[in-house]
């Protein structure tokens, strides 16, 4: 088992929580893990990415090789395309489509969505809307992760345990909020594939 995952978003959107959840699940499953994060200057509202690599064999590089990523999980639609050259031929693009417009020349939304739909294996979800619908507007990141759970090579129960571990210090409410968010994203992806 080997999964190379790129997480993308804008500083402050919570990609490190996604990375931590996947990482914790991988460790619980006894897998090897390497997870390259972005800290420092770029975190201030700029484009951020994280490379998460999980495998049953030892992993060497902290960075994924060009064209070899199995999944891109993005919390922002334009950011989902920024690292598209990293995605493998059969790779999955899973992205929230709620844009973070903090630059003056943000591209046209329809054109952006058309580009995303060009990728055969994609799930495009309005994670912000879904998060609001389930009453936890701040969990769009975990909703997006939920939509990717079928492609992570790990059992859903393992990922649920990881959410419990990650949010343990933040209390039971926080754990349940994020478990619901992940489940809402997962359900959306199942329906999306059918349609």
């Amino acid at each position: 088992m080997k999964k190379d995952i790129i997480l993308a978003g804008v500083g402050g959107q919570g990609i490190l929580s996604i990375a931590a959840t996947i990482g914790t699940a991988a460790i619980q499953d006894g897998l090897y893990l390497k997870q390259a994060e972005v800290h420092g200057m770029s975190q201030r509202g700029g484009a951020v990415q994280s490379h998460v690599r999980i495998s049953s064999e030892e992993i060497f590089s902290d960075l994924i090789t060009l064209g070899k990523a199995d999944i891109i999980i993005s919390i922002e639609p334009m950011e989902s395309l920024r690292y598209l050259n990293m995605l493998s031929k059969d790779g999955w693009l899973i992205t929230n489509i709620n844009p973070e417009v903090n630059i003056p020349d943000y591209p046209d939304m329809e054109e952006l969505l058309a580009e995303i739909r060009k990728i055969r294996n994609h799930v495009a979800l309005d994670a912000v809307k879904i998060a609001k619908e389930i009453g936890t507007p701040k969990t769009a990141n975990i909703v997006t992760l939920g939509a990717a759970t079928a492609h992570l090579g790990m059992g859903y129960e393992t990922l649920k345990d990881a959410v419990r571990t990650i949010f343990k210090t933040k209390g039971e409410d926080m754990i349940n909020m994020n478990l619901n968010a992940m489940e809402a994203g997962r359900k959306f992806a199942v329906e999306y594939k059918k349609s």
């Binding site: 334009m78 395309l81 920024r82």
Partner: peptide
């Protein structure tokens, strides 16, 4: 790379 980065990315 299989996919190119679209020109519209800012």
């Amino acid at each position: 790379a299989t996919f190119g980065i679209p020109d519209m990315i800012r």
